[in-house]
Design a protein around this nucleic acid. Sequence first.
DNA 1: GTACGGTATATAT
DNA 2: TATACCGTAC
Length: 725
Amino acid sequence: MGITGLIKFLGKSSSDVHLKDIRGSTVVVDTYCWLHKGAFGCAEKLAMGEDTDQYMQYCMKYVELLLRYDIKPILVFDGRHLPAKELTERRRRESRKQSRELASALLRAGDKEGARSHMRRCVDITHEMALRVIRECRQRNVDCIVAPYEADAQMAWLNKVGVAQYVITEDSDLTLFGASKIIFKLDLNGTGSLVEADKFYLAMGCKRENYNFEKFRRMCILSGCDYLDSLPGIGLMKACKFILMTEQEDMWKALRKLPAYLKMKNLQVDDEYIEQFHKAEATFKHMYIYNPFERRMARLNELTEPSTEERYCSNAGVIIEDQERALQLALGNLNPFTFEQLDNWHPDRNYRYAQATNNKIKRAKHKSIWQESYQPTSSGHISKDVLKDDKCALAFRKVDFSTKFINEEITENARVERAKPEEAEIFSMYQYKATALIEPSAKRRRYSSESNNDDADEYKKSEARQNVVLAHNNHNPFAKVQCTEVVKSAKTVCENSSLLKILSPKKAHCETNIRKSIHSKSPKSPLDRLQETAIVKSRFFSNNVHEVNSIKKSVSRDLSAEINSIEKQSCQKEGKLALLYDSPSPKQNLLGKGDEMLEDDAASTCSLKLNTSFIADDNVDNESRNSIDNAITISGEEDNNNSIYENISQTITPTSQKSKSSKMFFKSQEKQRLGLTRTKSKSALKSQKTNGKSKSNSTLTTTTAMLHSQTRLTMFGFQKRPTLK
DNA sequence: GTACGGTATATAT
DNA sequence: TATACCGTAC
């Protein structure tokens, strides 16, 4: 309920704020507000007992909004009800019950609209709902804490001790608990209203030197708060007037003069009211909170005069002697009302594990308040060291593999991991090395981080990393090939059997057998995989991320069946190679999920862009985006003989260079000469040393194809149909 | 005329 | 939980 009209009253103490203004800070969030608004959207489902996580999704929208501005959110949830509030809570419960009964009655009567409106009124936020949000947050490394009692006190404490610089809430009570910077009415655009405690004197209309926070709190309590109803006829304005009139610190004396000061002769202020007034004041000052750093309950403000103040603290909660239970409550594992165990998440056990294994969901880089080494920084900005430490996915210990939940998570993550097509995987299949045609800037970026290392060293390292990827990758047929004894001896480098037949008939035979053996386990060809992650783009393609996203969404096709029908042709001539794919409907056939191809009819060319899934990533820096923009696409060109010459020279770097290689682009030359140059793999280099005859295996050079004039699709272009001469 | 207090209504998608 | 509106008390 809060203080009626307080936010409006605080107009002069507030200012508009946008999340970009508080970038890098830490905020505590009154999650109840989000849950309530989120639950409103699915009130009917909740009322009908249907399972829904719409409210959770709504909360996560806000969480992601904050993370987008590099703000560390700490979600705070309400705990147990205070004895003083039990009455109002009971009233609310009854009101909800009535609404529910009314809604069902209206529903039976056929008044759906009427029923709906009452269903909205009977929405109750349960701890199970809160726990759903908490679990989602844990996956994202977003801190949550359940207050022993009111979230308001917990948030004010986190604000007071400097853990959080701002509080996000809709409840004006926060001001009374002593929070210094509160953001009200935050919307999904990131705008809100910032109320600053050090400007309260402006709202109260007094000089700074005449103001203190005690006066403000007393004014609010007088006007009526959750713990004490106001005297009849007393609102914020009159309470403010009275507080500014009296300089009496002792409220026993001051309040007795209130009717006289306000000229309200009929008003009676009895001792009972004054006693309740002191209790309300003590509740705001000394309510119990949970200290996650010392892992114990504590008071929001310690008692300065224990003997006198303690007797007013009857509404400020009771301490839980059992430290473990207090921790479990704060973590959200227990239902605060029944103490029923609903989860067994523990920061010491689960934190590093989740950090190391959960790569399905983007995790916040912020350090958790539940980590032993947590040190709140005064500015709220996270130090680089902290980030560095957090990024170390391998440095985890204390993993309790016996825990049921962890095991479930392991299984799930392993499943996801196996199913996830990695860019690296694709690269591992096509480990050809670019030579002349790599965009110079891309090349520079690729080695920029290790500028002191020579290329050979870097290559060695990447090769080692690549092997790790290959070794565990069950979905990469090539990885299998490279891991089996048979293939080690085969040393085949070319996936395309037709092409291989031409290049090396003997090897092709061997390869065919191998392919047959792995086909059943891995039905998708590498080309399928490539196309699933590749985006075929026009040479006019946009650097607009949203556009790319929309394009990706709009095109969704499964290529696996059609791709097999693509005839692969090749020929070898003068050390150059072109791969040509024939299809009755080539354009469509090559359009896969997330792929896009734009044709330039006039020039009879179209172009294809490889590996651009990262384009849609919001994290792509401007440099990369510019690279995308500048990336020269590969296109074919019709010559006088209705043939095309295509060339491509590209490097698809080893798997481990995922991030770097994803920034690589292939640049077409003026006359569209495309070719494939195979990377000299470690084994190839070795075999070259030992066996000079392995030359044909180690170097897959480009071939030139001479083609007929029918329109067909090349691997890198949409062309007049080419045939081999 | 000002401020209080009760009632009605919006909140999401 | 908030605001808007309107009747009422002083």
